[in-house]
Simulated scan of single mutants.
Amino acid sequence: MNILRPITIGGQEFKNRVLFPPLTTGYEDKDGTINEQSRAFYTRLAKGGVGYIVLGDVAPIPSFAVTPKLYDDSQIECFRKLADNVHAHGAKLGVQIFHPEYNSEVLNALFAAGKMEEVRSQLHHDMDHFVNEVMPETLDQIIDKMCACALRAQQAGVDVVSIHGDRLVGALCSPIMNTRSDEFGGSLENRTRFALMLVKAMKAAVPDMVIEYKLPVITPERGKGGVSIDEAPIFAQWLEQAGVDMLHVAQANHTGNMADTIPPMGVQPYCFFADITALVKSVVSIPVSTSGRIIDPAMSEELLNEGKADMVGIGRALLADPDWVNKTLAGRPQDIIRCIGCNEGCVDTVLNRSFIACVVNAENGFEAVRFITPAEQRKKVVVIGGGACWLRGCSCGCY
């Protein structure tokens, strides 16, 4: 199967074409440390056969969000432990670097000084404000901090730097969110200026690492942060020229509706971003990946066979069954526990300030302490009722 074939990206060989895309897991400690829970989760994915794993939302500065953080040398060691674990199973590790719209250390200092107006002015929690207020000199400082983060990732043994093209970068690129009148606003060339500056700086800072760029695309129905469908092929070519080794094409976000990018059952069709990905892939020579309700090997194989993508992002389906790849490799795709698209454990729990879990996988989120093993004595069991999904109050209709 093509999905199981190796692929070379930026001079590095990935053992297969299955990637675990960046998700906010909620597993990390409040200070951003990759703890045992987080390490066990990603290690389990690598053990299950995934070729490329990306940590989502790695911040290069302090922030209040419970995401991984890599802004100080003292944090390198926890990332090194994770990289070693993942590499032991033949997988590559990437970190998706993003910049939040505030720095918690600055805010805490202002708060301690009683400067509440300044606190309120900075703590918008909304890129709609920040993207149009941030000064050019601050953008230069942000690039420096993101490059410093990449250097720490390199020291930790991480293989790939994935630039988060949504968030601040995508907001600057956006024809909807960016209303600036300076050199960072207006035309597509101006709106993508920061993104291309960042890519070139990152390439210079860590020339031996693979540089990936998440390319969010605004569709007529969804998304605000990113570029339009017509602009995406042009921007993709500019990114390749700037030094990007791989593109990950995905639905743009910044709408406040998680269903736009992580659609539950019935909201979007399977493989819903494949055609837009194919449009981008047709104009570049570097590998292109995508994600979006791709849940089984047959769907993945079809995307590759039709030339719509070079790698396939499997997110929620790997939460449901981390052995997705190994079962495919063993010729047992029928044994894969399928994601039901309920979003009950993976999305709702994170929005409620908890951590990712899965209604069809009791190990998920508890990989360090729970282990599903065969029963010592085989029995025939009959389940009467709607099943675990119904018992948890899910409204997906799968029962």
Rank of each mutant, 00 (worst) to 15 (best):
A171T: 13
V95L: 01
L123I: 04
V58C: 11
N132D: 09
M127A: 07
G165D: 08
N108Q: 12
Y52C: 03
F41R: 14
A112C: 04
V119L: 05
M116E: 09
V119K: 01
A40C: 00
Q141H: 12
V119F: 05
H99Y: 15
V54N: 00
G157M: 03
C78A: 01
S174N: 05
V58A: 10
V161H: 07
V169Y: 04
K145A: 08
C173P: 05
G49I: 02
A40F: 03
D128Y: 14
S121D: 12
L93V: 07
H129Y: 15
C173E: 11
V106Y: 13
I163V: 14
I143E: 00
G94A: 11
D159R: 08
R44H: 10
S174A: 01
A150C: 03
A83Q: 04
N85E: 14
F98H: 07
H129K: 13
R39I: 02
G157E: 06
K69W: 12
D72S: 15
I76Q: 00
F64Q: 04
A148I: 02
G170Q: 07
Y71W: 12
M146I: 10
A88Y: 10
A109F: 08
P100I: 08
G48N: 14
E105S: 14
I53S: 06
L110Y: 00
S104K: 02
F41G: 11
D57Q: 13
A150Q: 00
K47L: 10
I176S: 05
E36C: 02
I53K: 05
L107Y: 04
A112P: 02
V95G: 01
I61T: 15
A59C: 14
V131H: 08
R120V: 07
K81V: 10
R80K: 14
A113D: 15
M177Y: 04
L151K: 11
N178G: 07
D57M: 15
P175R: 03
H129C: 00
M127T: 00
Y42I: 10
L151S: 07
A91G: 01
T43G: 15
M146W: 13
D140S: 12
V86N: 07
M177C: 07
S74E: 13
G114T: 06
Y71M: 01
V86R: 01
A88F: 05
H99Q: 14
M127G: 07
E137L: 08
D140L: 08
Q75S: 12
D57L: 15
L151M: 12
V131K: 11
R44W: 08
